[in-house]
């Protein structure tokens, strides 16, 4: 589903350039569950942003679902993000003046969907993620775990093919963290391709395919596994 070929990205920091991605090539199949680990500054977030079409590579090719992403303009990338990709961030990034429900339906609003069409979709996600009694609350009235669950609901509301999570448990205690991971894995088991960046080895180990990055390169790749269900983690 995802094919990266020799992706490079360098940032200029004053006089010197920092190489964030150094010829990264990667194939990811539909429905895979990947974790990305590595020291700080090794390029994990940059890789995720690249895949998530938030950032553009300097050189290299990127195909998503068979389409060349490097030829897209800003508009096209925005549309792809909206349709195929869901993001979960460490900092939740909920809009604090909007209720949980309104936060969740944002992608549908941006896509221009009619309220009548949105309602059943939002209702379904809210129920699936166990947020029924919290839907009307503002983010600040929610616990960290609940906030992240709202963020996840928002990420999957458009039924994207790809779910990208950058340290989703970074701000959470271990219990809430485990719950969030369980939720993500559940979604993965329903077919979504899941990429999780984490510093927590325990979480990283659960993925069916584990990447390790150092200095902008993928130094270890446990290799593709046919289906994530076979790992058995999702059912645990």
């Amino acid at each position: 589903m995802i094919r990266l070929q020799a992706l490079c990205k360098a940032y200029a920091l004053g006089d010197e350039t920092v190489t964030a991605l150094d010829e990264v090539s990667l194939d990811i199949g539909a429905g895979e569950y990947l974790s990305v680990m590595g020291p700080s500054g090794s390029g994990k977030s940059t890789l995720l942003n690249m895949i998530g079409l938030l950032d553009t590579p300097d050189t290299g090719r990127y195909q998503l679902c068979g389409h060349d992403m490097t030829i897209l303009n800003e508009e096209g990338r925005a549309a792809e993000r909206n349709r195929r990709i869901g993001f979960v961030f460490q900092a939740y990034h909920l809009i604090d003046r909007l209720s949980a429900r309104e936060n969740i339906e944002l992608p549908l609003v941006l896509a221009g969907m009619a309220p009548a069409e949105r309602r059943p979709l939002v209702d379904e996600v809210i129920e699936r993620l166990g947020l029924l009694d919290r839907a009307g609350h503002l983010p600040r009235q929610l616990s960290g775990g609940q906030r992240q669950r709202v963020a996840i609901a928002r990420a999957v509301i458009r039924k994207p093919a790809l779910l990208l999570a950058d340290e989703p448990t970074g701000n959470l205690d271990s219990h809430s963290g485990a719950e969030v991971i369980k939720l993500l894995e559940e979604l993965n088991s329903q077919g979504i391709t899941l990429l999780v960046v984490t510093h927590d080895p325990a979480i990283g180990q659960r993925a069916g395919r584990r990447l390790r990055m150092e200095d902008g390169r993928v130094t270890e790749d446990s290799g593709a596994v046919n289906t994530p269900r076979e790992t058995g983690y999702a059912r645990r």
Binding site: L54, R81, H93, P107
Partner: peptide, 11 residues
């Protein structure tokens, strides 16, 4: 930034 990540265009 979030809105852009969720697919909002510049326009």
């Amino acid at each position: 930034g979030l809105l852009r990540a969720l697919g909002a265009t510049r326009r």
